[in-house]
Design a protein around this nucleic acid. Structure first.
Lengths: 236, 236
DNA sequence: CGTTACGTTGAAAGCTTTCAAGCATCGTGG
DNA sequence: CCACGATGCTTGAAAGCTTTCAACGTAACG
C-alpha cells in the first residue's frame, strides 16, 4: 500500500486503478542522501514515483556548471523523459534518504491501453511539471538574485506544504546553499550574501537545514508570489 | 487532411487514428502576426496543434517583464497546460501568419479512452516539451550572453530544419532582437551588441528576418551544442 | 512626409562573479 | 580525548559582464 494515499490533496484511486497499480509496480528503491537515481547520459528502463524524501533533477554542462532543474518531492513522477530519449538528459540525485516506487517502462503501454484515467494522470503530471519549469525559467530570466531567492523559498515552502512536509512557517530544508545557487543560476557567494541580507531584514531564517519564514507577506511580495491554486492532484 | 503528414520526421498515423483525429478536430484558426491565441489569465477550452507558422509562448510579470518560454513551430501541441489550470498561465502569440488545428478539450478524454496510442503521443510531446525547457533553463542558468545567443540560434536552426523550414544554413527568422532578448533573459541592448560581435567574427548573419549560419562549427562550439537525436516524432 | 517599429551606439551605473581566505561543525582515527 | 580532513558557511575586495539611460539612424507605411 502506498503511503501517499493518506495525504490529502492527492486524488483517490478507484479499486480497479489500485489493483492495476499494484501489478504495474515492480518494486521499490531506497536511496541514501547524495546517491543518484539516474545519471545524465545513462539509460534506464524505469519510471519512478517518489514515495518519501527530497531529491533534485539537474543537468551538468561539459564545463562543469550544474543547473538544478527542479526539486522532486513525494508524489512526483520521475523519468518520463526517458520514454522520449534513449539516454537520460539529466541526473536525479537524492538530498535526503529517499524511497521510490519502480515502474518498468515496458508496462507503460498497458497502462495507457487499459487505464486511460491513469494515462490522463500521467499527462496531468507532465503538464504540471512544465508549468513548474515555466515559473522557474521566468524567475531566472526576469528577476534579481533577491527576488529569485524569495521565489525559491516560497516555492519550496508551498510544495512542502502540499505534501505535508511543513508545519506552518517552518520546514526541514535538506539543501546546501550551493544547491540553491545552482537552482537559481547564481554564484554561491552571492547567494550567501543575499540570504544573509534577507535574514537580517527578518524575512526568513535558514539555519542548519531548517527554514523559518518570519515575514510571509514580505517574502511573497519580493517573490512576486502569485498563489495559483490547482485542481486536486493525481498521482500514480 | 493535415499538411504535416508529408513532412518526414513525423510518425505515420494508422487509418483508425486518422479517422479519429478527423472527428477530434473541431476546426482551424488563422492568426495574423502579433495576434494572440491564448492570453495569460484567460480561459480556453481548446488544445491546438500548429499546422503552419511561428509563434511563441510567454509569461509576463506584473512589473511588465516578459519571459519567452519557448518558440512554437509546426507540429507543436499548444494548450495542454490548461487541462491542469483553470486560467492560462502564459500567453501564446503568433510571429508569422499561423494556422492551427483546434481540438476541444472536452473530447480529450475520448482520445485517451479510445486511442491509447495517440494518448501516448500526447505524453511524448509533453515530455519533449519538458526537455526543451530543461535545455533552456540550463542555458539561462549556466551560460554567458554570447553562449546563450549561440545556443538559441543553433536551437532555432535545428528545430526549423526538423520541420522543413530551413534550407541548409539559412532560414527565415521571424523574430525581432527584442524577442531573442526576452527569450534569453538579456537586455535588448546587450543582445544587439553580442549579436553584432558574433556577426563581425563571421559566425552568423541575421539581417532582415533572415538568419545565415556562416561558421557552424564555431557556432556549435560556443553554444556547447550537443546534437541529441530523438526517436521518430509523433504529432496529433 | 510624419509616424512607428526596429536596429545601433556610447558611456555610466550596478549587480554578480571571481578570487582568496578564514571560520565552524562534524565524523574519524590516532 | 584531541588532532585532522572534509564539507559547508562567511567575508572583503577587485574585476567583469549586463543593464540602464539617452540618442540617433533607418526602413516601412499610410
Amino acid at each position: 500500500m502506498c503511503p501517499l494515499n493518506e495525504v490529502p490533496g492527492f486524488r483517490q484511486l478507484s479499486c480497479a486503478e489500485r489493483d492495476f497499480m499494484r501489478q504495474f509496480k515492480a518494486g521499490e528503491v531506497q536511496l541514501a542522501p547524495g546517491q543518484t537515481l539516474l545519471q545524465q547520459g545513462g539509460v534506464s528502463d524505469s519510471l519512478y514515483t517518489v514515495l518519501a524524501g527530497w531529491g533534485f533533477r539537474a543537468k551538468t554542462l561539459p564545463d562543469g556548471c550544474r543547473q538544478i532543474l527542479n526539486f522532486v518531492l513525494p508524489g512526483d513522477l520521475v523519468g518520463l523523459q526517458s520514454s522520449v530519449f534513449e539516454e537520460a538528459q539529466h541526473s536525479v540525485e537524492a538530498l535526503t534518504k529517499m524511497r521510490l516506487c519502480i515502474f518498468p517502462r515496458s508496462r507503460l503501454w498497458s497502462l495507457y491501453r487499459d487505464h486511460p484515467s491513469l494515462a490522463l494522470d500521467v499527462t496531468w503530471l507532465a503538464a504540471r511539471q512544465e508549468f513548474l519549469m515555466d515559473e522557474n525559467l521566468t524567475s531566472l530570466g526576469c528577476r534579481s538574485a533577491r527576488e529569485r531567492l524569495a521565489f525559491l523559498l516560497s516555492w519550496l515552502h508551498h510544495r512542502a506544504t502540499e505534501v505535508g512536509l511543513a508545519e506552518d512557517n517552518e520546514l526541514e530544508l535538506p539543501l546546501t546553499q550551493q544547491h540553491a545557487a545552482d537552482a537559481l543560476g547564481l554564484s554561491l557567494v552571492h547567494t550567501n550574501k543575499t540570504l544573509q541580507r534577507m535574514s537580517r531584514e527578518g524575512m526568513v531564517e535558514w539555519k542548519k537545514g531548517r527554514l523559518t519564514i518570519r515575514d510571509t507577506p514580505a517574502l511573497h511580495a519580493t517573490a512576486h508570489w502569485d498563489p495559483t491554486r490547482t485542481a486536486a492532484r493525481p498521482f500514480i
